[in-house]
């Protein structure tokens, strides 16, 4: 029996591995994208949601953070020697867990719409997609084979905890990166 390294991915995180590993995560309204390059057996996953905002086109403000989550994932994959032309893309999440109209029932759909539009814009074809519905998804992504196991979570307490955590997360505004100007460097 193989003992693979296990990585638990929280919202906002990205992980890619060239060694056999299992990347695990729990998704409610968030989305996760799994990328796998069969030629070099490199796999990576992100887990994100768009911050609150009125619009979700790939070039709108809230989507900047979705673009960033995708950019980081592709970057980590490239660092490990993979090539975007070989990416096998799988998309998960965007469930309306315990959704109530007052809590913004469109949010899961916004996350999914963003990912679909982003991938289309980048010319990345989706090999498998499991989105929507009302139950959270527990993912296990095997980075050496590209296989993803999806389990729906029916336990109500887990759903409630996830709903609260994601609602809190959504209210955190995204942070922008800093600027450094080099003085007296090689110009």
């Amino acid at each position: 029996m193989r003992l693979e390294k296990e990585i638990l991915l929280h919202v906002g995180a990205v992980h890619a591995s060239a060694e056999p590993a299992v990347i695990k995560t729990l998704l409610g309204s968030c989305v996760a994208v799994c990328l796998w390059d069969p030629a070099v057996r490199v796999g990576g996953m992100n887990h994100f949601m768009l911050p609150q905002g009125s619009s979700t086109g790939p070039l709108d403000d809230p989507a900047r953070f979705g673009v960033h989550a995708m950019d980081r994932l592709v970057g980590e994959m490239l660092k490990l020697g993979s090539s975007p032309s070989r990416f096998v893309v799988k998309v998960f999440g965007g469930a309306s867990v315990l959704a109530m109209p007052a809590s913004g029932g469109h949010i899961p759909q916004s996350n999914v719409t963003f990912v679909r539009e982003y991938l289309a814009r980048e010319g990345l074809r989706v090999a498998a997609i499991s989105v929507g519905g009302t139950l959270p998804r527990q993912l296990r992504f095997f980075t050496d084979t590209g296989r993803v196991l999806v389990r729906r979570v029916v336990a109500l307490r887990t759903q409630e905890r996830l709903f609260v955590r994601e609602s809190e997360q959504r209210r955190i505004p995204g942070e922008f990166g800093d600027v450094t100007l080099f003085r007296g460097g090689r110009r």
């Binding site: 900047r64 953070f65 673009v67 960033h68 950019d71 995204g174 942070e175 922008f176 990166g177 800093d178 600027v179 450094t180 100007l181 080099f182 460097g185 090689r186 110009r187």
Partner: peptide, 19 residues
Amino acid sequence: RGRAAGATGWLVKPFHPDT
């Protein structure tokens, strides 16, 4: 490494358009 390569500046993503 960026400075040594000859870059003028370094901006970390995600970027704010105004910045």
